[in-house]
Design a protein around this nucleic acid. Structure first.
Lengths: 140, 140
DNA sequence: TTGATAATGATACATTATTATCGTTAGGAG
DNA sequence: CTCCTAACGATAATAATGTATCATTATCAA
């Protein structure tokens, strides 16, 4: 007999692709869509394919390393897990999603009779630093 | 010559289908998905088809009577326009979207340097009155 | 180094949401 | 009442997103 659980579950391999995807998500410092993760990770591993990105996103979620972030009217993004409760900002121009620090709403909304709240999401929209018209140049 | 603008744009017809869809959205008193609107409106006009629902939703938006509500990870809902700023509650069990009164977040989130906010959305999740386990029956 | 096989890359397939097509129906001006 | 045609209903087509397949590659234990 060789082991009970420990070794049996160690069937996962550490591939360069998975490492590239993990690094892409870490260095981006914001939630990425699968397409964004692909593009970013391809800088490190050019032959990477989109199917592998989807597969590894799944794996990383199961491992508890990633967390899906659902966005109104846009495809799901994924962010590195374990950051504590926070919310997001989406740029109207480039569509990128950014993390905001902490939770704004300690406020409890008044619900209709009989409703019970278990959680909330907050999204701020606007222009990110890259897309904000630069005032120093606007002096045309 | 018959008129300039007024009559030329009055090419719209008032169909029973459109009336049924409008009534469905009004009486539901919450944002409906196209499928929900179809089901509801079919009580009034059973032969109604889904394509007509989509077409009329478009028309009603152009007329300023309807407003799309994008929901994280779920299909777009539509609510009667002109109700003032408010937010929404989604039931984890039945998936229905409900309106909440007023805006909870006068709070301004602190954004990263150079970011500019133009709006926000707030979603509360939980159980609606129908799906909350009834305490009066739970006394098994 | 080698060999079993997990993981990959390309792409076919599936799903969901919405739009386009087209023959038929019915609103409403005359 | 008639006629023109906007709107309808059924359904095919499209778009966006994610999953399945399968031959090939490469990880890692022995």
């Amino acid at each position: 007999m060789e082991a009970f659980d420990t070794e049996l579950t160690m069937e996962k391999r550490n591939t360069r692709q998975k490492a590239a995807i993990r690094e892409a998500l870490t260095s981006a410092n914001r939630p990425l869509s699968p397409e964004e993760a692909l593009e970013e990770a391809q800088h490190r591993h050019p032959s990477l394919g989109i199917a592998t990105v989807y597969r590894n996103i799944q794996t990383l979620i199961e491992e508890g390393w990633l967390r899906p972030v659902e966005v109104p009217g846009d495809s799901t993004r994924y962010e590195v897990a374990g950051k504590g409760h926070h919310h997001h900002f989406q740029c109207n121009e480039c569509g990128k999603l950014y993390e905001l620090e902490g939770c704004i709403a300690q406020v409890r909304p008044k619900l209709p009779r009989g409703f019970r709240a278990t959680g909330h999401e907050f999204f701020v929209y606007g222009l990110c630093a890259v897309c904000v018209p630069d005032r120093s140049q606007a002096r045309a």
